[in-house]
Amino acid sequence: MYVLIAIVLIFSATIPDKFLTATTWRTLLDNQAVTGVAAVALVVPLAAGVFNLAIGLQVGIASIVVGWLLVKQGMPVAVAVPATALLGAAIGLVSGLLITKARIDSFIATLGVSSLLGACVTGISGGEQILGMPKGFSSFGTGEIGGITYPVLCLFAVCLVVWYLLERTPSGRRVYATGGNVDAARLTGVNTSLVIIGSLVACGILASFAGMLVTSKLANADPTLGPGYLLPAFTAVFLGSTQFKRGRFNVWGTVLSVYVLAAGVKGLQLSQVPVWIPDAFNGAALLVAVAAAKRQGALGRSSGLLARAVRRARRTLPPDGLSEQKG
Score class of each variant (00 low, 15 high):
3 V>F: 11
4 L>R: 11
7 I>T: 13
15 I>D: 03
25 W>R: 07
25 W>K: 06
25 W>C: 07
28 L>N: 09
29 L>H: 05
30 D>F: 12
37 V>S: 05
40 V>I: 13
40 V>E: 01
41 A>S: 12
44 V>I: 13
44 V>W: 03
46 L>D: 03
51 F>Y: 12
61 I>H: 09
63 S>G: 14
64 I>N: 03
69 L>C: 09
73 Q>E: 09
84 T>S: 08
87 L>N: 10
92 G>D: 05
96 G>A: 10
98 L>C: 12
104 I>C: 02
105 D>C: 00
107 F>S: 03
109 A>T: 02
116 L>V: 11
120 C>M: 15
122 T>N: 09
126 G>K: 11
127 G>S: 04
127 G>M: 02
131 L>N: 14
132 G>C: 04
135 K>G: 14
140 F>Q: 08
140 F>G: 05
152 V>T: 09
158 V>I: 07
158 V>T: 09
166 L>P: 04
169 T>L: 08
171 S>D: 08
172 G>I: 09
181 N>M: 06
187 L>K: 02
187 L>Q: 06
188 T>R: 10
196 I>N: 12
201 V>I: 09
203 C>Y: 04
203 C>S: 13
204 G>S: 06
205 I>T: 12
207 A>K: 00
208 S>H: 11
211 G>F: 11
213 L>K: 11
218 L>S: 07
220 N>P: 06
222 D>H: 09
223 P>R: 03
227 P>Q: 11
230 L>I: 00
240 G>M: 01
240 G>C: 01
243 Q>H: 13
251 V>K: 00
256 L>I: 14
257 S>M: 04
258 V>E: 09
264 G>W: 02
277 I>M: 13
281 F>A: 09
283 G>F: 05
286 L>K: 01
286 L>Y: 07
286 L>T: 08
288 V>H: 04
290 V>H: 06
291 A>F: 14
293 A>V: 06
294 K>R: 15
299 L>N: 10
302 S>L: 14
305 L>H: 13
312 R>M: 15
312 R>E: 15
315 R>Y: 05
321 G>R: 15
322 L>E: 04
323 S>Q: 15
326 K>M: 09
326 K>H: 12
